[in-house]
Structures are given as C-alpha cells and as structure tokens.
Amino acid sequence: MATLEIRDLHVSVDTENGPKEILRGVDLTIAGGQTHAIMGPNGSGKSTLAYSIAGHPKYNITSGTVTLDGEDVLDMAVDERARAGLFLAMQYPVEVPGVSVANFLRTAKTAIDGEAPKLRTWVKDVNTALADLEMDPEFAQRNVNEGFSGGEKKRHEIVQLELLNPKIAILDETDSGLDIDALKVVSTGVNRFAEQGDKGVLLITHYTRILRYIKPDFVHVFVDGRVAEEGGPELADELEANGYERFLKAAAK
C-alpha cells in the first residue's frame, strides 16, 4: 500500500518584499486505506500544501521532504509526480481552449499508464465515469473546463480522479462553491475511489459540511502554516460547533 510522507516541510513564495514563508514545518503521513481531512481558516496554507506536493512552480520548497513509497517526490517534475501516483483535484480547474475533454482524458490516461487505453473499454469507462458524476456524455466533446459552471468543473475533476485512479488523491477544496446536490455527487465519487481499500485521500476543506458525506479517519487542523492539532473525526465535530477560534487564539499566543 502506498504511503505519502511529508516531513518538516517549509515552503515560501516570492513576493514584492522578498520571499514569504507560508508552510512552517508540516509533518503528515497518509497511508493507503486512510482518509485525512485538513481543515483550517483562510490563509493557513492548506492550498499551498496541496500545490507544493503537486509541484506548482510558484512554491519554493526551502526545506523538508516529501516521499511517496520512499521515492523523493520533490525531485520529480510535475508530470512525473502524477505518473508516480499522485493526483491533485484543483480548487480552480483551468480552461484549455480547443482541447476536448475526450482528447485530454485519453492523453492523460496514456501518459499515466504508459500505453494507450483499449479503445472499446475506454469509451465505456469515460461514459460510465461521466454518468457516475451525473454529467452528460456530451461533455466529452466540449473543451476542457471551457464554459463549465463551477460545479461542472469540480465534477470533471472527480471524473479524472476515477479514470486516472492514482494511489493518493489530494482534494483541494473540492467542496467549495458546490450546492448540496453536487456535493453529494462529488462525495459519492470520492468514496467510490476510497472504497477500493488501498487508496489514500487527503481532503482539504474550509467547511465541515463535506465531512457529513466523506468520513475522515484523521482530522488535522491547519493554522499559520503548520498542523496545530490532530485527532479523529470528533475534532471535526468540535470545529463544526466552535469554529477555528480556539486554534487561532492558541497560534496568536
């Protein structure tokens, strides 16, 4: 089973006033079969963690390690990380004009597997994945994310999750901007992925709402660039009742 290990991760971004540290020593281990929720207020560095693991060039890793099954992830190019088994469902999926969803999915699947998928089963798989996320089959012919509503973009991310079937999925605020029906559809997709048994899920969210549909094994509260507190699902219940105030006060001390 896959294991993603993050050790003492420090990340900064370049600003007009020089580098600004956003992650200040993150330790986290996500093993296959586990679902972890990272919760935290705005600006706590949750998304930075997601994008740093995926290798976005904006983020500079100043120290620490990230390994997947012992392999150094930070040494890999963005596409190599994906091929190694990491997947990031993005908060703001990007439009790619002129490239159809069908072409995009086939190109990605071919890159991940190292060989083109078998045509007959592939078309069926795509249609099944779209249907599972309650997306019309005609989405396959549309350009990637172009003219998609916010909810359609998020569903499209989960379609990709199901088709590419990585070892570890990082979901960056996949729930934000979704109405309750879309949230259920997306959550069902994530659960289907997780129920394979050997998959790791890192669910990043601002709200507790999605945790009614996706049950985390572990909850980590993120404040000011590091994990402030860790616990089981009961920690999410406390956040639902009391919000982040206790953690923010603790961090301010």
């Binding site: 190019a77 993005m90 999926p93």
Partner: peptide, 9 residues
Amino acid sequence: FYLQARGIP
C-alpha cells in the same frame, strides 16, 4: 501545470 498534473509531459 494543469496538464502536467495529469501526467502529461
């Protein structure tokens, strides 16, 4: 970045 994050070189 988006395309590379899906494994495409």
